[in-house]
Design a protein around this nucleic acid. Structure first.
Length: 322
DNA sequence: AAAAGGTACAACCGCTGGTGA
DNA sequence: ATCACCAGCGGTTGTACCTTT
């Protein structure tokens, strides 16, 4: 990617932090700047971004700091290529949500809206475009080309059911607590915090088996939480727990008070964190404390509320790799 | 080996909405 | 009611890297 500009190139300031700042830096971030921002964020938490920029000794605007943190430096980011499961989920979510990248990103733990947007524009879009006309009947193409916003709930359901059974390499399966629960076109309200199935003492384990769930991406106690199953336990092998949407915030999860240190390297710590988070967030959105409120947002011509009104509260995605 | 074209993605820009004075 | 400030979002751009010719 771009290499960081040399300090002399993009700034008219002196390089010491006490000098008067005449012009804000632009362009790529240097490792030194990254270091400053990370250290500041981990020790002070997120405040007003313009204050962050100033107090961290960065000749950057707050906006730039925010973007850098959110899209690149945040400890809970999952780096690397998108998995087929994530790809499938993105295609599906895009068909439902359109270009609402932040909403899509909220359902893909560890991924940023920018990352998903880039991935969509560079990879998926191209792939769909290159799909032959004969393939246009495939669920993915159909979803992406026509968009599901024009379909009713049953059509969406049928399409997604088809998608979940037709994939050659993987599938997205939505699981519910109750057999009567219907398909959720938006696998949103599968909130780990307060989810009965994931209460204190439950163990979350890593999909690869090389650690504890959440540790790999530093997710516990930070922005979002991914729990990938490694076989056995509550989450099956290859299953991916998708965290809640707006219920997860930096503030809610201690990002602002230094609790996000990526140091939860064992299951006990994770569980302790979970207990803490659950207890702090167990106010929930309904009368028994297990549900979470879903934001009242519009999606095109229809209200998300309408779409979500029958959505069961405890669904989680189950990626089955065949 | 070098040039050209393509790709991926970090970062910027402009806009919108929320909030407080 | 208005204004200013800020956070957040989506679109777009710029460029390092990769692939092809």
């Amino acid at each position: 990617m771009r290499k960081p500009d040399t300090p002399a190139k993009n700034t008219t300031t002196t390089n010491n932090n006490t000098g008067a700042v005449n012009k804000l830096r632009k362009g790529l971030w240097s490792p030194e700047e990254d270091d400053k921002l990370v250290k500041y964020m981990l020790s002070n938490g997120q405040g007003c971004w313009s204050d962050v920029a100033r107090n961290a000794g960065l000749q950057r605007c707050g906006k730039s700091c925010r973007l850098r943190w959110i899209n690149y430096l945040r400890p809970d980011l999952k780096r690397g290529a998108f998995s087929p499961q994530e790809e499938e989920l993105i295609i599906h979510l895009h068909s439902v949500l359109g270009n609402r990248w932040s909403q899509i990103a909220a359902r893909l733990p560890g991924r940023t809206d920018n990352e998903i947007k880039n991935f969509w524009n560079s990879t998926i879009k191209k792939r769909l475009k290159n799909a032959s006309p004969n393939n246009s009947e495939s669920p993915e193409t159909k979803e992406a080309v026509s968009g599901l916003a024009t379909l009713n709930e049953h059509e969406i359901m049928a399409m997604c059911m088809e998608s979940s059974t037709s994939s050659s390499t993987s599938s997205v399966r939505v699981m519910y607590n109750n057999a009567s629960d219907r398909y959720d076109p938006l696998p949103l309200p599968c909130f780990g915090y307060g989810m009965p199935s994931y209460g204190p003492g439950n163990y979350f384990h890593d999909s690869v088996g090389g650690g504890n769930a959440g540790v790999e991406s530093g997710l516990f106690g930070s922005h979002g939480m991914v729990i990938e199953g490694g076989g056995g336990g509550l989450i099956g092998e290859g299953e991916l727990y998708v965290p809640p949407l707006e219920s997860v915030s930096l503030e809610d999860n201690g990002m602002t008070n230094n609790n996000n240190n990526n140091n939860n390297n064992n299951g006990n710590d994770n569980n302790n964190d979970m207990n803490k988070v659950i207890s702090e967030n167990s106010v929930g959105g309904n009368n028994n404390g297990n549900y979470w409120e879903v934001e009242n947002m519009r999606m095109g011509e229809w209200e998300l509320d309408d779409l979500m009104k029958d959505v069961p509260p405890f669904a989680f995605l189950d990626f089955q790799v065949e």
